[in-house]
Simulated scan of single mutants.
Amino acid sequence: MALTPTAPLRKRATTAAFHLSAGSLAALWLFPIALVLVTSFRTFDDIAANGLGSWPRSFSLDNYGQAWVDGGQQQALINSLIVSVPCVLVVLALAAMAAFALSRYELPFRRTMLLLMLGGNLLPPQILLIPVSKLSEMMGIYDKLIALIGVQIGFGVGFYVFVLYGFMRAIPVEIQQAAVVDGAGPWQIFWRIILPLAKPALAALSALSFTWIFNDLLWAITVLRSDSKMPITAALIGLQGQYVSMWNVIAAGSVIAAAPTVAVFLRFQRHFVAGLNLGAVK
């Protein structure tokens, strides 16, 4: 059936409308971020005299120095990295080994263990705040970073096992059978065959888990008390209390807090998209 003369015009109009609406939504989403970035470089006198939403008439890097040193962002960022990096490495290592065993071998109560792991992630964390706080006190690790690391690993490993289970189960069993014929043991199969094939899934989960752990606030204020041990998210709240109306310093602290996760996202952005489909194949 031949296209009518108005069909190309209609198609171009539809395409233009789509790009216009998508561009408008993107600009609307980016506007607050741009406002925070611009505010972080303005002086307090400029904001006080002309208003927060006015055109900037000043430029200064002193705001970042105040947030970094006087606001405690430096130590808070170190604390966040001390917690986030080991958590990501340990939780993915444990999850990968557990998912390998559950997906490649007929273990007893395999489905029950998977359902328990999934069910644990469905519990609202608010009902566990007091038990976790009391347990950390009984173990003598309350107000220590190791307590926060343990909590993040304990509550994260179940979800990552469930996701990696779906990915590893989709790997053809013939690959494993060929390795067994060649004399490979379970550890060699896991390390040399399954783990390299699961790199896309692990990369996506690494970026996601780093973002979740780095941005977490709830568990930090549950098992930590000292200001010197708080991560960047809790320190940002303290910064807002310290510099109540100095929006330029607060904006600079927000940029510092967001920088690591933005860097990780830009590095692994392809895997973020691929990660949306992880575990979907049964």
Rank of each mutant, 00 (worst) to 15 (best):
R110P: 00
A257Q: 14
N248P: 03
N50G: 03
G51A: 03
L208G: 01
K199M: 09
L135N: 11
F272R: 03
N248R: 02
F272G: 02
A76G: 01
A280H: 04
Y160E: 04
L92N: 09
V36I: 15
L25P: 00
L20H: 00
S254V: 03
N215E: 09
M139R: 15
I175D: 12
R225D: 07
N63D: 08
V181R: 14
A13G: 00
P196T: 08
V281M: 12
V157S: 12
L20N: 00
S226T: 05
M113W: 14
P125E: 07
S58D: 03
L81G: 00
Y142W: 07
I130T: 08
P131A: 10
V151F: 12
W212R: 11
A17S: 04
A198T: 13
F167C: 04
A96W: 11
F18I: 13
I194L: 15
L239R: 08
H271S: 09
D46K: 00
W55C: 02
L239C: 11
S40V: 03
F31Y: 14
F272T: 00
T39V: 07
A201M: 03
M168R: 10
V255Q: 13
S245A: 11
I78C: 01
A67E: 12
S80W: 01
L236E: 05
A170H: 05
R42S: 05
G156K: 13
L164R: 07
A22M: 13
V163I: 15
Y142S: 07
Q188N: 02
V163L: 14
P32I: 08
L278T: 03
D45Y: 02
A76V: 02
L28R: 01
W219R: 08
V181K: 15
P196Q: 11
F190W: 15
D45M: 03
S226W: 06
A179V: 09
A67Q: 13
V151R: 13
E174R: 08
V36P: 04
Q126Y: 06
V244W: 06
T261E: 03
F214G: 03
P186R: 15
